[in-house]
Design a protein around this nucleic acid. Structure first.
Lengths: 221, 221
DNA sequence: CTTATACAACCAACCTTTCGGTTGGCAACT
DNA sequence: AGTTGCCAACCGAAAGGTTGGTTGTATAAG
């Protein structure tokens, strides 16, 4: 077996990603990561310094990969949300990493790779604004947030959301459920964005002006 | 100081809730919990058995409290979502506990207090179906899930969502942001539920029948 | 009313295991 | 020959959980 520092590093990164996704920063075991990678524990310290730094490297790596896999919002926004939903459903690892990260760092802490991530969202919000024919204002960023949340939520607290699904009066297989949720997300986004540029924050009868107990029919049909 | 088992138990439960919300099951320190409660560590084992059982007790306790605080969906559904958003925004502890729980237990594990929680969601979905004039079918449970997700998401990954918000071209204070997000959520829910009972899964041109590249204008209008 | 007895709440100190991180030496490529 | 990737063995700290014993409280006999 030839020596190959880059390959060792890559193996460690991949093993660490699995381990961190499963157990988080505190729960991950350095020894397990080394064993998964088939590499000595000390190599982790040689390559990355310590466990925390390894976690940050994993995050940067995973986010870069995700960015290349999912493009910017394009075409039909609702279908974009549907695609996003499917991605997280099939590949929950990234979401788990994000959750661990969010819980691990304090509310006001600096996230690893902050500037890169910010730039990425700038692009995404810009693309969304382009599709909607609006500017990248607060309302559009909020919508972006809502879009991502809609798509990611069912995979974020999967047990809880399965609990909710079990309530249905219809007997439901996993497959059915998946498409039902997907369809609902697409439907909600479609309706919400249908006439988005008309309903700005200062538009007549806009959001927040209706108050509790309103009839739920904004912007007159 | 008189001896009072119930009071000791309550102090432990409260201290444990804080500790678990901050650090999760694995990261919580039994000694710290005891110190926070001003009680000897051993009392935890006397009252609850072990750390995991203490966590389950905390979850049941916290969920019961939340249930009493937030009622069933009623009145305007969109405003209900807005209220839910505000609750999680001001009181992120429960959401953090749910995230730790979700990450801690495997995808297929049994959640503590499962049956109680299920019953609670049955009520909620029932109330939602009543407001919408539909049955508690898959589509309604999916909507319930989406509603909760919408309201909870910004508080679930707060750092990430603040990153998205920072992208806005408008200068934004924390206060502004909060109301902008809230307004967006209310608006999205209002539009999505406006003619919910018309757009069922088998209705003409319903969700999922439009395919990618659709024009984003559902159901005629 | 006092005292003896049983039991529950409580605590300080301890034990065992585990874990993140380090060290000294070996082997391979330049 | 020297530099670098690599590893087995080791170390100190900390954590979950246990134990033996003490103090408060309720009950019932004297």
């Amino acid at each position: 077996m030839p020596r190959d520092a880059a390959a060792t590093r890559a193996k460690l990164l991949s093993a660490a990603r699995d381990e961190f996704a499963e157990h988080g920063v505190g729960g991950a075991r350095v020894e397990r990561i080394a064993k998964r990678a088939g590499v000595n524990k000390e190599r982790i310290y040689g390559h990355f310094g310590n466990k925390e730094a390894l976690f940050e490297a994993v995050m940067v790596d995973a986010l870069a990969e995700h960015t290349n896999g999912i493009g910017l919002p394009s075409g039909d926004i609702a279908e974009y949300a549907g695609r996003l939903y499917e991605f997280h459903r099939k590949n929950p690892q990234l979401l788990r990493l994000l959750m661990w990260e969010s819980l691990h760092y304090g509310e006001d802490a600096e996230l690893p790779g902050r500037e890169n991530r910010r730039a990425l969202y700038t692009e995404k919000v810009g693309a969304l604004a382009g599709l909607l024919g609006t500017r990248a204002d607060r309302r559009t960023t909020s919508l972006m947030m809502v879009l991502i949340g809609l798509a990611a939520w069912p995979s974020t607290l999967p047990q809880l959301n399965r609990l909710i699904s079990d309530v249905s009066e219809e007997p439901t297989s996993g497959e059915d459920l998946d498409t039902a949720v997907r369809d609902t997300i697409v439907e909600v986004v479609r309706k919400a964005t249908a006439d988005w540029s008309d309903g700005g924050p200062d538009g007549g009868g806009g959001p927040g002006g209706d108050g509790p107990g309103g009839d739920g029919r904004p912007e007159g049909s």
